[in-house]
Write a protein that binds this DNA or RNA. Structure first.
Lengths: 235, 235
DNA sequence: CCGTATTTGTCCGTATGTATG
DNA sequence: ACATACATACGGACAAATACG
């Protein structure tokens, strides 16, 4: 929270609402706030050293973007994503990623191709070392790089919004070395298709790769799902 | 605004913020608020008979969903969408619509097929009568029906969010009879592919159809674009 | 079943920053 | 360049609804 304090002290261009929004989003994504948990307005306000106004404004925004979930006279909760909806999120993510890769195949430049190949190599090394954490981080960088190189702001924005929502899912077991190897092999194939300028193939492979994430998620949830009070967001 | 009054009078389950959100969204989509226009908090609060609190909370949500645009110490504006971003929105819309049609091809039932064919026939009639307004309305119903029949909540939600944003574009000249006929011909092809269970083809046709909307929009903007102060939304 | 404490929903006042003459 | 008017940003207080004992 000292971060927020300094942010407030140094702020000139940003509003408290924005800072609080970022902070709540960070807490949710970091796991400080778990799915289903209620957000106490005045407690959070006291903790961040602000009044309830900015808190309320910030939560409205987060509700709209799908991270939180508001029920009248009860408060806002960290959104609980039902399994069927999680599956749908993976679907949309897959088609957007496929589109991005197809687009990238038509406009990639050698330097970008080299950067992506380098990331794949580093992921291989991480797998060899059994370093799952590094692999996870590199994997994120790899996808980020693809999103950036494709130079399609809206696709990137849509994709990242979906990614944030999937973070609400209870992150399952770390991928085994075998799975990581399989996933990185798919990376290699996608980049090969992009390098060859074969947009159609890049798209298909990218979609399959993204669906792999959905499959891995489906595989690794054998616990019984628990439900929290879900409210309808006003469309 | 009397609608708001009655909504307030009868409300039990909804909050003022939600009502105001819906109202602002309606005003923007109806054209009561044009792109670039600033929203005066206290004026709107007085007009709706509420205080400024709910107004502020509502606008934060709309900012997050892309309809409004906030700049510090200056207020919120109806979002002005630059041409390049509008083009991107059409792109993402196209891939989502393609996905939906491909999915529909795998699960459509005869009754749904009949309903869609009926809508196409009605659109033909509207074109014959030169009734552009009816065609526009039927066209919306047609796409809505496809979204519903595909039974993919998240894809529908994503698609509709993008549609709302494109409503911010200055809606250009009504389509000529020729263009409407061409568009409805594409509808017919899409449905034929869906009826044949050919998901791949349905997807391709649907994407091309959606891109047609982008092309028509590009064609019909020969006026010089004017820009308003655009602020960065905190990612 | 009722009373109390807590929390949310709403409103209003004040300070600060921006635009304009 | 300065002063004035105005709009937003934030904080605090009151009322209503909910949860708990």
């Amino acid at each position: 929270m000292s971060d927020v304090m300094t942010a407030i002290a140094q702020r000139r261009t940003q509003t408290l609402t924005g800072i609080v929004q970022d902070e709540i989003e960070r807490m949710v994504l970091a796991g400080d706030l778990v799915a289903g948990e209620r957000i106490n307005e005045q407690a959070l306000a006291a903790r961040l050293g602000v009044s309830r106004g900015p808190i309320r404004e910030a939560t409205r925004g987060l509700v709209r973007s799908g991270l939180l979930n508001s029920v009248v006279n009860l408060g806002v909760f960290v959104r609980q994503i039902p399994d069927d909806e999680a599956s749908e999120i993976y679907d949309v993510r897959a088609v957007v990623f496929g589109f991005v890769c197809q687009r990238l195949a038509a406009r990639i430049v050698p330097a970008q191709l080299e950067a992506l190949s380098e990331l794949i190599a580093e992921m291989d090394e991480a797998i060899g070392r059994g370093d799952g954490a590094s692999y996870y981080r590199l994997n994120l960088s790899f996808h980020d790089a693809i999103l950036d190189f494709a130079a399609h702001g809206r696709a990137k924005q849509t994709y990242e919004a979906l990614i944030k929502e999937t973070h609400l899912l209870r992150q399952s077991a770390l991928a085994s070395a075998e799975r990581m190897r399989e996933s990185n092999g798919e990376h290699r194939e996608i980049i090969a298709a992009i390098a060859a300028g074969d947009g159609e193939r890049a798209r298909i492979l990218a979609e399959q790769h993204a669906h792999g994430g959905k499959r891995r998620w489906l595989d690794s949830r054998e616990e019984a799902p628990r439900q929290e009070p879900e409210a309808r967001n006003s469309a």
